[in-house]
Design a protein around this nucleic acid. Structure first.
Lengths: 141, 141
DNA sequence: ATTCTTGCAAACTTTTTGCACCGAT
DNA sequence: ATCGGTGCAAAAAGTTTGCAAGAAT
């Protein structure tokens, strides 16, 4: 489930003209390494493990900058906190395991197609969408 | 787009053993009348138009009570605020018009079915789900 | 009479901001 | 040298809570 990274976040920041400071380097590193969808507090914690002293305001500001430049995606699941992931090369949706809190990515062309169709039927075109399936593991073992 | 209300929120509160105070009566009235998905601040404003002096903490507490008893549904769209609607008799999903902020309800059996299928393929069963299509009107005029 | 609800203010949590300083370009 | 980024502390914004008083049952 490790996705092939064609380009690192640092590269994409450079391309966007964002300055690469020491703090940012660490934040971007943490983001690139994250396979989950951490919130700011968790990011700050992980950053602090690598390099202590980075202020949480810096993490907030960096996340906002990155989101402005579409380098990361923001999610707000039912816990009400903003969570982040590096902008995926391909769109996907999320399972959220209600028992463990784990977030699993998935993708279905068929659902994507159906969504387009339904939007069209209502006279809309889709700008973006969000599908979250809150699930639990089937006890069939 | 006015949905047929079989039972009013006040009735459902009584059934759940919640006390009907003056403040609650107004809040429930506002909720029943709302065809949109207001947040607490907006609810408080509307309540204040009918009967001034209701504290916003009361609105918060009432919303939490109602949610506990499954009499309303909480939503958090991309604006990051908690929004509410009376618990719908039938499940539905939402279009959010990104240009106007308008929220439109829709429902597709086919999508529901597909979701179940995909969850099953991943070894999950669905507890609940959320599908939000951020859309804009098609300029075909 | 009892128990639930309310108002108010204070506290809490999450996020943003003003400002002086520092560092990347 | 410039302009953007950072730390810090304060402020905002959204939500919750303790407590004493009041109202529904």
């Amino acid at each position: 489930m490790t996705k092939a990274k064609h380009e690192t976040l640092i590269d994409r920041c450079r391309e966007s003209g964002l300055r690469i400071t020491g703090q940012r380097r660490v934040i971007l590193e943490v983001l690139d390494a994250a396979s989950d969808h951490p919130d700011v507090e968790e990011l700050h914690r992980r950053v602090g493990e690598i390099e202590p002293g980075v202020n949480i305001a810096t993490v907030y500001r960096t996340m906002n900058k990155l989101a402005e430049h579409d380098l990361i995606e923001r999610h707000m699941f039912d816990d009400g906190r903003l969570r982040y992931e590096p902008a995926p090369e391909e769109h996907h949706d999320h399972f959220i395991d209600v028992e463990t809190g784990e977030v699993i990515e998935f993708m279905s062309d068929e659902i994507e197609r159906l969504q387009e169709e339904i939007a069209r039927q209502h006279g809309f075109e889709i700008v973006s969408h969000k599908l979250e399936l809150y699930v639990k593991r089937r006890k069939t073992d």
